[in-house]
Design a protein around this nucleic acid. Structure first.
Length: 472
RNA sequence: GGCCCCAUCGUCUAACGGUUAGGACACGGCUCUUUCAAGGCCGGAGCACGGGUUCGAUUCCCGUUGGGGCCA
């Protein structure tokens, strides 16, 4: 098996799924999986994209047994193969200029026929062809397509037929000597002894070309399996326009590689039963093309987020901490607090970005108070009540969730107000928001000093916002 | 334009001629609760359409429609 991306963009989720399925199939069948970089398109290929693709694959845990191989370093191989096909009469040189071809195309259009290359070069006697080549006349090399229907037995779609009329003698080597995509693919697949080509649906229509090429090369024809495309929520082929289409974007959004892999595995493949969360080992053990569907599927970020949350829910605290560290701008609180904070926030975050932010809040005071919540929960007498509360909390010696809660409820009762009148503004004081983990758990983790500090800072802010409210 | 592929809840999917069409995400409700989640329970939601084949079609065949891809 092989995964063969072109470094003309970063690895996107469609490519990642293709790579994953290749890997799963290879592992299941005890085969070999290799990586080949198809960088023959010199205008569009970029080196930094190659390293991005490699690191994205590594991040996802898509390890390959061989490679990466680079097509740009294999030109000799393609040149030899092209020469051989020409000398065997399976391909031929074509000397038409692009002006001549344009004219032919226009004429075909004008007469309302579909354009096909005339195949004029086919009939040229070999010695004339050789002579003109020796004289340095510009020419391309074209494959002699057979005049028969080409049948592809796709492992996912079954039998697909391509009538000969739809295929003309396509170009293998450009007039500047540059070998073209389909040609390199087949030469490499042959040389690398690929037995199963598992790739996106967008290549199905290219497959008859490949079959013809394999035959011309005298090579065994691999088995083909074409996956349905991955679509955006607008049902168009997934691309940058759809927001996060690249693997690294999901990484930066705080998605775990395990979750993304799991999600992609299920985009087209259905293991038996109602299982949704599968380990790599289970996937490798159970993957089968029989259970891969032919239809395209829409990439639904909501479900990926849910799956990520499932992985966060199951992961050891220590591990979550490690994964969230890059997203915690203020660093981590001390170990014991950090571990407890993970447990506290685990059920209410969906990404490691959110976890990182939550962890940061134990280290860094809130930069601002959510304005709407401030308006809602800060009344003229709030500052005074919170000040009473701070004084009362000062006296708490065994700082814990229950003891601080008792202190708060006592303060509220004395003041003749409901506990909520203190709880809500206090959450705002400590976290800057009106929603989040249970208040007294936060209080306990924050510790006495930080709690009182943030509370008093908030009292000042509340006073500043309502200076006209005198309270006794 | 030519050729090719695809079609079950909004989305991912199960079903391999006979099922009250199952599960998951999302959505709604209830529960828990100081807030928000998570969890538990409940609910609404689908076989694109038209012809065949068959005792019987979501399932097989053909067409229509819709979507997608490749080539130019």
């Amino acid at each position: 098996m092989r995964f063969a991306p072109s470094p003309t963009g970063s690895l996107h989720v469609g490519g990642a799924r293709t790579a994953l399925y290749n890997l799963l199939f290879a592992r299941h069948e005890k085969g070999t999986f290799l990586l080949r970089i198809e960088d023959t398109d010199v205008e569009r290929s970029r080196d930094e994209l190659i390293s991005q693709i490699l690191s994205a694959m590594e991040w996802l845990g898509l390890e390959y047994d061989e490679g990466p191989f680079y097509q740009s370093r294999r030109y000799d191989l393609y040149r030899e193969a092209a020469d051989r096909l020409v000398s065997e009469g399976k391909a031929y040189r074509a000397f038409e200029t692009s002006e001549e071809l344009d004219a032919q195309r226009k004429a075909a259009e004008a007469s309302g026929r579909a354009y096909r290359y005339s195949g004029a070069g086919r009939e040229m006697p070999p010695d004339e062809s050789d002579r003109r080549a020796r004289e340095g006349q510009r020419h391309v090399v074209r494959l002699k397509m057979p005049a028969e229907t080409i049948v592809v037995d796709d492992l996912i779609r079954g039998r697909v037929e391509f009538p000969a009329e739809a295929l003309d003698d396509f170009v293998l080597v450009r007039s500047d000597g540059h070998p073209l995509y389909h040609f390199c693919v087949c030469v490499d697949d042959t040389e690398m002894r690929i037995t199963h080509v598992l790739r996106g649906d967008d290549h199905l229509a290219n497959t008859p070309k490949h079959v013809a090429l394999f035959r011309a090369l005298g090579a065994p024809i691999p088995k083909f399996a074409h996956l349905g495309m991955i679509l955006g929520t607008d049902r168009k082929k997934l691309s940058k326009r759809h927001g996060a289409a690249a693997v690294e974007e999901w990484r930066d959004l705080g998605i775990l590689p395990e979750a993304l892999v799991n999600f992609l595995a299920l985009l087209g493949w259905a293991p038996g039963g109602d299982r949704e969360i599968l380990s790599r080992e289970e996937m490798e053990r159970e993957f089968s093309l029989d259970r891969v569907g032919p239809s395209p599927s829409v990439f639904e970020p909501e479900k990926l987020l849910w799956m990520n949350q499932q992985y966060i829910a199951r992961m050891p605290a220590e591990e979550i901490l490690n994964r969230s560290l890059p997203f915690s701008p203020a660093g981590l609180p001390e170990a014991e607090v950090a571990r407890k904070a993970v447990e506290l926030h685990r059920p209410r975050v969906r990404t490691t970005v959110e976890m990182g932010r939550a962890l940061s809040s134990y280290v860094r005071d809130p930069a601002e108070y959510e304005p709407e919540g401030f308006r809602k929960h800060v009344k003229p007498d709030t500052a005074a009540h919170l000040e009473d509360l701070a004084r009362r909390l000062e006296e708490v010696s065994d700082w814990s969730a229950p003891s601080t809660e008792a202190a708060l409820r006592e303060t509220a009762e004395k003041a003749g107000i409901s506990a909520g009148k203190l709880i809500h503004p206090m959450r705002l004081a400590l976290t800057g928001t009106t929603v989040g983990a249970p208040l007294f758990d936060v209080v306990e983790l924050l510790g006495k000093d930080t709690t009182l500090l943030r509370l008093r800072r908030f009292v000042e802010a509340a006073r500043a916002a309502a200076p006209q409210a005198p309270t006794s």
